[in-house]
Amino acid sequence: MLIPHPLLGLRDSSEFTYLGDAALLDRPDGMAEGAAARFHDYVHLRDNPAGIHRELWFHEQGDRSWLVVTRNTVTHEILGAELAREARLKGGAA
């Protein structure tokens, strides 16, 4: 697979390490009220869609950027990739 790195262009997937659902960007505040329940969901619950999926890839053998890659899990088509830090600053995984 080829991943369109926003800074480096198309890169081979073998340069990356996969993590999973980009929902991990939305880490709850551990000091807030109800943190225990929210962390339960954050740690354990994931959607597993057949279709469009936003997921985290780390360019470990490259520039060490974390990317949010949008991928169709059925066809493996990659619909886009952005820097995770920018996705997070824009307001998280959504």
């Binding site: 991990l24 780390f58 950027s65 974390w66 997070r88 600053l89």
Partner: peptide, 18 residues
């Protein structure tokens, strides 16, 4: 060493980029 560094970059870029 590798996984911890990856995790630290995850925390820096994905959790607290500010």
């Amino acid at each position: 060493a590798g996984p911890v560094y990856r995790h630290m970059e995850f925390a820096r870029q994905c959790l607290w980029p500010e």
